[in-house]
Simulated assay, not measured.
Amino acid sequence: MSRTPPLILCVDDETVGLQVRRMLLERAGYRVLTALDGVLGLEIFAREPIQAVVLDYSMPGMSGAEVAMRMRHTKPEVPILLLSAYVDLPADVKEVVNVCMTKGEGAPVLLEKLSRLVLNPADTIQSESL
């Protein structure tokens, strides 16, 4: 019997980055849903069986930190990887996500961190930061 690939939600207001991330994750064997803002991301998160989230930090309207906090109230068990162009994120932001990484770290790091999150979400909670 074949196992269904994990369903990942990517939320980012940059269309090109979102499309590239989606292609990368799909090639790595994930199923991927995308959202161009936090409101849509939260709607998808609430109705779909999301297994992990890749979330941009800096978005207009609702920051990735606010989106992550709301996701934690809805489904606290779902791991969240926060992507940022910023290196020094506030401590309270780092505490609400499982893993933080900079966008400049690249695709191999993203795939490795996401794989660890999907396989062992409890092992990575608040253990990694920028």
Score class of each variant (00 low, 15 high):
Ile44Tyr: 06
Val99Gly: 01
Arg116Ser: 06
Leu33Thr: 05
Thr74Met: 15
Met69Pro: 03
Ala91Asn: 10
Arg31Met: 01
Glu105Met: 15
Glu112Trp: 09
Ala65Leu: 07
Leu117Arg: 09
Arg116Gly: 11
Val96Ala: 09
Val54Gln: 04
Thr102Arg: 15
Ile80Met: 03
Glu77Leu: 03
Leu24Met: 12
Arg116Thr: 01
Tyr86Phe: 03
Ala68Pro: 06
Ala122Tyr: 04
Asn120Ser: 15
Arg31Leu: 03
Ala52Phe: 03
Ala68Arg: 01
Ala52Ile: 01
Val53Tyr: 11
Val67Glu: 03
Arg31Ala: 08
Pro90Tyr: 12
Cys100Gln: 12
Glu77Ile: 00
Thr34Ala: 10
Tyr30Ser: 08
Val97Gln: 01
Ala122Thr: 06
Leu117Val: 07
Val118Gly: 13
Gly104Thr: 05
Arg22Glu: 14
Val97Glu: 04
Glu43Ile: 02
Thr15His: 14
Pro6Trp: 10
Cys100Ile: 06
Glu77Cys: 04
Val96Gln: 06
Ala28Ile: 02
Arg3Pro: 03
Ala35Asp: 04
Leu9Cys: 07
Ala85Cys: 09
Thr34Ile: 11
Ile80Ser: 02
Arg21Cys: 14
Lys113Ser: 10
Val20Asn: 02
Met1Cys: 06
Arg22Gly: 11
Glu77Asn: 09
Ala65Gly: 09
Lys103Leu: 11
Pro90Phe: 11
Val93Ile: 13
Glu26Gln: 15
Lys103Trp: 06
Gly17His: 10
Ala28Phe: 00
Ala91Gly: 07
Glu14Phe: 04
Met71Leu: 05
Thr15Leu: 15
